[in-house]
Computed example of a mutant assay.
Amino acid sequence: MRITSRYFVAPTVGLLALALVACSSPAPAGTEKEAPVEKTTLRLALNQTEEHPSFIALDAFGERLLEATDGRWDIEVFPNETLGAQAETLQLVGDGVVDMAIVSGAQLENLSKDFIAFNLPTVFDSVEHQISVVNNPEVTADLYSSLADGNNISVVGGFTQGARSIYTKNAPAESPADLAGQKIRVQESELFLSLVKSLGASPTPMAFGEVYTALQSGVIDGAENNEVSYFTQKHHEVAPYFSYTKHLIGLDYLIINSGKLDGLTEEDRAAFDEAWTATYEQHTELWTEATEKAISDAEAAGATFTEVDSDAFADALEPLVDQFLTEPSQKKLYDAARDASKK
C-alpha cells in the first residue's frame, strides 16, 4: 500500500501539487545508452479511507499498470476526499486537473439520464449480476463513451457498492411507516430524492464527508449506504440502527479524462484494460470479505442490524421504475441488465 504524507495536506495544497505530472525513472545499470523511461502518474480521486476495498483494489491497479507498461504508466490514489467531494472531482476530471476518480452512479445520472437505468432499485438481483453487466462492453460501450464529447469524461467500468440500506439515530426502520418525517441524507440526484420520498422520509442532499457531523448534530436523522461505508466512516457511532431495507445495489464508476485515455498507445491501452479487469474482480472479492467484517465490527461496537418488512419496502419503491424509465435508450439498458440475470 503506497500511502504518502501528501494525503493529509489541505485540498488546496493537494491541487497545487497536481502540476507535477510526470517524472523520469533512471535506466538500469549498464544501459546508459538507452533513453530513460518516462513515467506518467495518473492522479485518482477517492472519497473513501485507506482501509476501504476501493482504495486497496485501486492501489493494486497502479502496481499492475506500472508493471504491465514497463514503468510508463502509474496510478496514485488520493483517498479521504483529499481532492474534493465527488461532485467536485467529477468536474476536475473533465477539466483535466485530476486524471481519474471514483464517482457514484448518482453523479453520472446528473450528466446523462441514461445512467438512471443502472441506478434503479429493481435492476440488479445481486452483486454478481451487477458486475457482469456494468463491466460488459457489449452492454455499456455506447453509454460509457457518451460523456466524452460534451464533458471530456470516459467511463472505464464499475465497482459494486453492495446492497444499500437505511441507518438511523433513534430506532430501526422496520417498515416505511417508521421513516415518516425523518430527515435522511441522500446523494444529489432526482432518483435518490424520489426514492427516499417514496419511503415516507424527507430526503436531505449533502456531500458524503459531511454525514458524520450531520448525524452527530441532529441535522439529519439517518442516511442510506452499505455496511462497509457505514463502518469505515464510523457512522455506526452516531446512528447505531442499521435496517436491511436493501432498496438497491449501489454502483460506483471509475472515470478518466478522455484526453488522457486517448493518449494511451494501443499497447498501453490493452495493458490498462487488462489491469482494470483484475482490479474490479479483486474489488468484488474484497467487498464480500469487508462486508462481513464491517457487520461484525459494528455489532461489537454496539450497532444493531435489523431485518425489515421487505414486501412493504418493495411495494413503496415499485413505481420508481415507470417514473424514471422514460426514454428508449434507458429502457434498452434496463432490459439488457434484466436479460443478463436470466443467463
Rank of each mutant, 00 (worst) to 15 (best):
A106Q: 12
S146R: 09
Q107S: 14
A45F: 08
H236Y: 15
A223S: 15
G302S: 06
G209S: 12
A270M: 05
L42W: 07
S296H: 01
A148K: 15
V308N: 00
S112E: 06
R64S: 15
I131W: 01
L15A: 13
K183E: 04
A300M: 04
D315W: 01
S126Y: 12
A22M: 10
S175W: 01
T284G: 03
M206A: 15
P36T: 08
Q187I: 07
Y241R: 05
H52R: 06
S258R: 14
D252H: 15
D311T: 15
P79K: 12
A148F: 02
I220G: 02
S202E: 14
Y230R: 07
E307C: 03
Y280I: 10
N47W: 04
F159V: 04
P121H: 11
K260A: 11
R6G: 01
T140A: 08
A85V: 15
T265V: 08
G150H: 06
F8C: 00
F8K: 10
G94V: 12
V228M: 03
T12P: 00
K197G: 04
S145Y: 04
Y280D: 02
L92D: 04
A57F: 03
L90C: 07
E299W: 00
L199F: 11
G150R: 13
L44K: 07
L179V: 09
Q91A: 15
I220Q: 00
I102S: 04
F231T: 01
Q330Y: 11
L44N: 05
E32W: 09
S341M: 05
L108T: 13
T306S: 13
V139A: 03
E109I: 04
E34W: 10
A300G: 10
G105L: 02
D297Y: 00
S329I: 05
F313T: 05
A207I: 13
E267L: 10
Q107W: 03
I184C: 06
P28F: 13
P205A: 08
L191D: 03
I3K: 12
Q282Y: 04
A171E: 11
G62E: 06
L16R: 08
L42S: 05
L147N: 07
A180Q: 14
P240W: 03
S194R: 14
Y144Q: 03
R269S: 09
K343R: 13
E281R: 15
T304N: 02
V127D: 11
P36S: 09
A45L: 08
L320W: 06
S341A: 15
S146M: 11
L215T: 07
L199R: 11
Q216N: 13
P203D: 01
A314E: 12
V211S: 04
Q161P: 00
S104M: 08
I166M: 04
A22C: 10
S258E: 08
A337T: 10
M206V: 12
G94R: 11
